[in-house]
């Protein structure tokens, strides 16, 4: 079958999709977007979390055919999605796509190895939550990271000033085996604080 849907603001068409294929498989193997991860493929680990019409879902549990005509945001589009949101735009417009070329052209902050105090590049290449995950040491092997980022970003959208218990509740569907979650909590707190500061500055 053929599936038409929007991924990270760009219309996509997947052909020869077998009816049993998941959204995760189509993203990873047919559209060249392997950022969403395949840690369990049974809806337990959250590593494949994407937003489907704004709602975080395990893309391994969504049949590809179910996304016909709908909007998907993956980790690859998260930075642009967050940028549009910060600028008051809506990503549902379909105008916020990040091409892979653009993604590859992203430049890092000037201070490379330093502890998150580097000058931001002219165009914020990473969303606040992505930057915070790097700065707080929330990334080790990184396999859980894409799903956690999508889930954490969505929580901060709903709840810009979360308590620790709020963060734990929102991320309880995302398994991480490396970090013991402490640095993930730090990262979300950091992203919330930076977002708040940014909001005050505006």
């Amino acid at each position: 079958m053929r599936v038409n849907f929007t991924v990270n603001g760009r219309p996509q068409q997947a052909d020869d999709v077998w009816e049993g294929e998941s959204l995760l498989y189509v993203l990873r193997e047919r559209l060249g977007l392997p950022g969403s991860k395949n840690a369990c493929e049974q809806g337990e680990c959250g590593s494949c979390t994407v937003r489907l019409d704004g709602v975080p879902v395990c893309s391994c549990l969504v049949a590809a055919g179910q996304v016909e005509g709908r909007e998907v945001v993956t980790v690859e589009g998260l930075a642009e999605y967050a940028r549009q949101r910060a600028e008051g735009g809506s990503c549902a417009s379909g105008a916020c796509g990040t091409t892979l070329d653009e993604a590859k052209g992203w430049s890092a902050r000037g201070a490379g190895p330093q502890t998150g105090e580097g000058a931001p590049s002219p165009r914020a290449a990473l969303s606040p939550v992505q930057q915070a995950f790097i700065d707080a040491g929330a990334v080790q092997c990184g396999f859980c990271t894409p799903g956690l980022l999508v889930a954490a970003d969505e929580m901060l959208e709903r709840n810009p000033s979360p308590t620790d218990e709020d963060i734990r509740e929102a991320l309880s569907g995302n398994l991480c085996r490396c970090t013991g979650y402490e640095k993930i909590l730090d990262a979300v707190r950091l992203a919330a604080a930076r977002q708040e500061r940014q909001g005050e500055a505006v």
């Binding site: 980790v75 998260l78 890092a108 190895p113 990473l126 995950f133 790097i134 396999f143």
Partner: peptide
């Protein structure tokens, strides 16, 4: 990975060189 004006040597909490690739979904597992 490099830095201007900072050493980034041992004992510092320098950040992962693969960090950006891992948070953008580009890191190839």
């Amino acid at each position: 990975q490099g830095s201007q004006g900072t050493k980034g040597g041992i004992g510092e909490s320098t950040l992962r060189p693969d960090g950006i690739l891992k948070v953008t979904g580009e890191f190839a597992y």
